[in-house]
Write a protein that binds this DNA or RNA. Structure first.
Length: 427
RNA sequence: GGAGAGGUGUCCGAGCUGGUCGAAGGAGCAUGCCUGGAAAGCAUGUAAACUCGUAAGGGUUUCCUGGGUUCGAAUCCCAGCCUCUCCGCCA
């Protein structure tokens, strides 16, 4: 959520942001409601001030055993008027607030204006794209071959868009999770295991609701959603809190499953583990002083890159243009890893700064040395998403002998297995 | 799921026979005095949001949430949410 005062004072900037993010929000309507709201407040508060004053006089008169019926009769009318105006005010505020929740965050000045993901800018490439003297297999074939991925079983259990890991596949995921969590906690992140279900307030706090309601699984009879990312519960950890300045920065890391409906995504690029309804992810969240968020954003990118580099997977970093930037973000880097089986890059991490957009929705603030209260800035970055990572590791590390090499950094988590050779077996 | 108790400021905790209650008292925190330094002690201060105003300053709201009664509600009534205790059930 943006600061209403900021919208009032800089409507052009906000309109420009809405346009560049390809959103449609009626900013003028918001300004109109804001005006209406404030004039109602002024009027109703004058009446309330009068009511408070006269009520006090009534109390005094009654104590002095004087007659106060005239005042009481008068106040009865004033009370009615107040009730009427309060109702008007409430409905105005409700409309204003619900519209405010649809206003996107404003892209940072360093973000390129663009029309689609085509306009994202590659700012870094790392590692060498592997060359093979044979045609590399896609991960779903490798996974079946080695008994590590069973897609048909998952379809039987839950339907299309789910996958099942088995044997070394399951162990590989567990090893990757441990490797990532260990790396991040060594970097000062506190590990969290949050609830995997979140209520409406929580989902609104990070910006998933109301706009992205269609993308989430909601429980039928309860006010709960399956989390689409650990960002949701972890960032909301400090909702409705005023932190001490010396508590900042807060660094959290969490491994959770992520649930996404992916409605309308069927068809393209969805085979195997690439686009699924449930996948695991390790997510980093930072809650920081507003002066530090862009600095922290760069560091967060490095912290995510560190994992990919450790696994020796070729990748590139893309700075997202305005059109591809999420609703809540001001700036975002995507890390895309090379997928040898698909012969293309796949997004595996989004590293975003939200400035105070989420903090304002969550009401997460801190008190500075002068006891002034400010909104914090929040950031998050995947470190990393598991399903696509597994697919890339299988595809990129296949050998001409039909085996798969395991990246060195995770071998200690896998009983020092170095190579996957036969179905269900290991060397 | 059943029975009971309760939700007050950063925390603990009073008030709850309706009026001068943003709310006693204490702790914590901040500043000052004291001290070689610290502790103790003493003094003072210590919410947030909205709104009017160039400012100084003023106003409104907030005692879990929402509604109601009333001229007036932390205090009374109703609904919901949450917490705790006991019983039941259960990984």
């Amino acid at each position: 959520m943006l600061d209403l005062k900021f919208i009032r004072e800089n409507p052009q900037i906000v309109k420009e942001a809405v346009k560049n993010k390809k959103e449609s929000v009626d900013i003028d309507k918001i300004l109109e409601l804001d005006n209406k709201r404030r004039s109602l407040i002024t009027k109703v508060e004058q009446l309330k001030a009068e009511r408070n004053k006269v009520s006090e006089e009534i109390a005094l008169k009654k104590q002095a055993k004087q007659d106060a019926t005239a005042d009481i009769t008068h106040m009865r009318d004033v009370g009615g008027e107040i009730a009427l105006m309060d109702a008007q005010l409430r409905s105005t505020e409700e409309e204003l607030n619900s519209r405010m929740l649809w206003v996107p965050n404003i892209p940072h000045a360093s973000v390129p204006v663009g029309d689609s993901e085509e306009d994202n800018v590659t700012i870094k490439e790392w590692g060498k794209i592997p060359q093979f003297n044979f045609t590399p297999l896609p991960h779903w074939e490798l996974g079946e071959k080695f008994g590590m991925i069973n897609l048909s079983a998952a379809v039987k259990i839950a339907g299309s868009g789910f996958y099942l890991l088995r044997g070394l596949g399951a162990r590989l995921q567990r090893a990757l999770i441990s490797y990532m969590l260990d790396t991040h906690t060594a970097d000062g992140f506190t590990e969290i295991i949050p609830p995997y279900l979140a209520n409406t307030e929580t989902m609104t706090g990070t910006g998933q609701l109301p706009k992205l309601a269609e993308d989430m699984y909601q429980l039928k009879d309860e006010n709960l959603y399956l989390i689409p990312t650990a960002e949701v519960p972890v960032t909301n950890l400090h909702r409705d809190e005023i932190l001490r300045e010396d508590q900042l920065p807060l660094y959290y890391v969490a491994h959770t499953p992520c649930f996404r409906r992916e409605a309308g995504a069927a068809g393209k690029d969805t085979r195997g583990l690439i686009r699924v309804h449930q996948f695991d992810k390790v997510e980093m969240v930072k809650i920081v002083h507003p002066d530090k968020s862009y600095e922290e954003h760069e560091t967060l990118l490095q912290q995510a890159e560190k994992i990919v580099q450790g696994l020796k997977i070729p990748y590139r970093v893309r700075l997202l243009c305005t059109a591809d930037l999420s609703f809540a973000g001001t700036k975002c880097y995507d890390i895309e890893i090379w997928s040898a089986g698909l012969n293309k890059y796949l997004e595996i991490s989004s590293v975003s700064n939200f400035e105070s957009f989420q903090a304002r929705r969550m009401n997460t603030r801190f008190r500075d040395k002068d006891k002034k209260v400010h909104f914090v800035h929040t950031l998050n970055g995947s470190g990393l998403a598991l399903a696509r990572l597994i697919s890339a590791i299988l595809e990129n590390n296949q050998t001409e002998y039909g085996t798969i090499l395991i990246p060195e950094v995770i071998r200690p988590y896998l009983g020092n297995i170095a190579e996957i050779t036969k179905s269900g077996q290991e060397k």
